[in-house]
Amino acid sequence: MIMFVSGGARSGKSRFAEDMALTHYHRGRTSKQLIYVATALRTDKEMEDRISTHRVDRSSIWETVEEPFHIVKVCKESGFGDVILVDCLTIWLSNMMYGKLEYSLPQLIEMIDSCILIAEEKRQTLIFVSNDVNEGEIASGGHSAVLDYIYALERIHQHVVTRVDEAVQVIAGIPVYWKGGGS
């Protein structure tokens, strides 16, 4: 099962995605690992604290993998029936666009597709968390680098929603299903 979860800042999307992941993990008889793919870079003390707070918040059944760039590698190394939560695409994209790496947008979309294909082959539950950042004022009055980023993110989002079984917008902790019924 492939799922896309997005919403505004502090809308409860990560919490919802984690609950979904746990539900699928406990439901699947074949589940082996519950993998949390954290895409944030450890850049400063504030970020370190944020990461450790999140780690403590999640129970020990989670296997946390910090992978700011090579999410396909994580997917390749995962096992049959695993539940994988990627949190989140926004941070991953900014790492990929503004780091030393140079990838084209089609290449980035291909990486996401690879993860989806692997998840389908291995009968995994794969959940992508992202942010709705395209509904603010910056969209029209903004700096062009910001517009480039929002454009790339939206291309990825639009592609991902065509490939997933369920697409969910979280508003104040409440899931609104745009695709799939929420089984």
């Binding site: 509904e135 004022e137 910056i138 969209a139 029209s140 009055g141």
Partner: peptide
């Protein structure tokens, strides 16, 4: 029409008016 009301309040007056 473009939804643009969901971010922070813009700093510049013209952008606030436009929003």
């Amino acid at each position: 029409m473009l939804e643009m009301g969901r971010g922070i309040v813009p700093l510049e007056e013209e952008n606030r008016q436009l929003r």
